[in-house]
Every structure is written in C-alpha cells, then in structure tokens.
Simulated scan of single mutants.
Amino acid sequence: MKKLLIIAGLCTIIALSGCTKDTAKNDIYEESGNTINVNNKRHELYNEGASKGVRNVSNDYGYVRHQKSPLMNDKTANNHYTALDREQLANIISKYSTNIPNVNDVATLVTDQEVLIAYDTNSKDRNLTADQVKKTAMSVVPRYYHVYVTDNKVLMRDVENLANTDSTGKNARNLVNGLITQMKKSPQGQPISSSEDANGLTPDDKTNR
C-alpha cells in the first residue's frame, strides 16, 4: 500500500512539473528566472535587459489608437506630461548623440517641455554638429518639446546641477530659463521649419513665454 502511495505521489509531481514547463513557455519570465513586471515596465521606452528567453519586442510593431473624448473639457489626453519617463528619454538622447561624429560626451536634461543638451565636441563645424544633436533629440521626444543645445562643456555641470534641483520648487522655472539663455549663446543649428526657429518655437510660443 505504501509503495502504491509513493508511486502515485511521484506521478503527481512529474505531471505538475510538465505543466509548469509548458506554462513557462507562454508566460513573461526569463529563462534565468528573473521576473519582468509588466506593470512597472509598461511606461519604459525600451528594455535593455531583454534576453533570449523573452520575446524580442524590438522586432514588433508598436501600435496604439486614441480617440478624442466626447466629453467637453476632458483633459485626460493631457496626461502625457506625467506618463513620460523623462530619465529614460534623457538616457536615449545622450546615448544616441554620442554616436554622432566628433561628439564625445553628452549631458541631457528633460523637463516637462524642453530638452537641454550640453556636449563636448571637437567638431570643426559647430553649427552642423548642433543641428545633428538637436535633431537627434527631436526624433525622440514629443513634437511639442523645444530643444536647446550647447557645445560649451562648462555648462555640462550646470545641466547636472539643475537635474538635482526640485522641479516643483518656486525657482525651478527661473533656473531653467537662465540656463537656456546661456545655452543659446552657442550654435543652435538650422530653423526647424519656416514657422519654427532653431529650437522649435513658433511665434505663438514666444508670445506666451
């Protein structure tokens, strides 16, 4: 009787192991056992830690559909200000910018409406390099953002210091505007379009600033 119970118990364990193995092929766990928490990852712009055990999301299309709310004055769509992971944006911009010829070091700060980029370069064409760095940032951030660049590497420290300040503080906006004024002393590249200046500002933007 005891032998029969032992044999039955072993069969149950083997069956459960088989089910677990089959389930593992369809779940969201890496083969190493590290869990991917979808709730924590869903706002990230990319996943550097993807392994062979996880579906390669970089090979998939990205598709989302939004419709305007039928309710008057519904501001739900404006939640993009808080949904963006600004640190991830800054990381991507800095990483991509170092791939530009003659750009060796890049410090990027992303606010709720601007990108501030200070970089070290040995480029002989400062305006061309500024244009390349700026367009790299604009290819990453939402279109309403304004981008400011500088090849004055002394300002890299100012960008870093500003990143460590309280963005909700009373003086935060003044500090950002002050740094922008200093950055604009460097080449900013070509105008974005006939209606936007080199930083992406329209006449309306300048009026409302």
Rank of each mutant, 00 (worst) to 15 (best):
T12W: 06
T12P: 00
I14E: 00
A15V: 02
A15T: 01
A15M: 01
L16I: 12
L16M: 12
L16G: 13
L16N: 09
L16Q: 08
S17M: 10
S17W: 04
G18V: 02
G18E: 01
G18M: 02
G18C: 02
G18Q: 01
C19I: 13
C19Q: 09
C19T: 08
C19Y: 09
C19F: 11
C19K: 08
C19P: 00
T20C: 07
T20I: 15
T20Q: 10
T20G: 05
K21G: 04
K21W: 11
D22G: 02
D22A: 13
T23S: 12
T23G: 08
A24W: 09
A24R: 15
K25D: 07
N26K: 15
N26Q: 13
D27R: 14
D27V: 12
D27F: 13
I28Q: 12
I28P: 02
I28L: 15
Y29K: 12
E30A: 15
E30T: 09
E31R: 12
E31I: 10
E31S: 14
E31H: 10
E31W: 08
S32Y: 00
S32W: 00
S32M: 01
S32C: 09
S32R: 03
G33I: 02
G33V: 08
G33Y: 05
G33N: 05
G33F: 02
G33R: 03
N34P: 01
N34H: 11
N34C: 06
N34W: 10
T35D: 06
T35P: 01
I36E: 01
I36A: 05
N37V: 11
N37E: 10
V38R: 09
V38I: 15
N39C: 10
N40W: 06
N40D: 10
N40M: 11
K41T: 08
K41N: 09
K41W: 06
R42S: 11
R42T: 11
R42E: 11
H43K: 13
E44C: 06
E44S: 14
L45K: 05
L45G: 13
L45Y: 08
L45V: 02
L45R: 07
Y46Q: 09
Y46C: 05
Y46W: 08
E48R: 07
G49C: 02
G49A: 09
A50L: 11
A50Y: 01
A50Q: 06
S51E: 07
S51C: 05
S51N: 10
K52H: 08
K52S: 15
K52W: 05
G53L: 02
V54I: 14
N56R: 08
N56L: 06
D60K: 07
D60M: 06
D60Q: 07
D60F: 04
Y61K: 12
Y61L: 12
G62V: 07
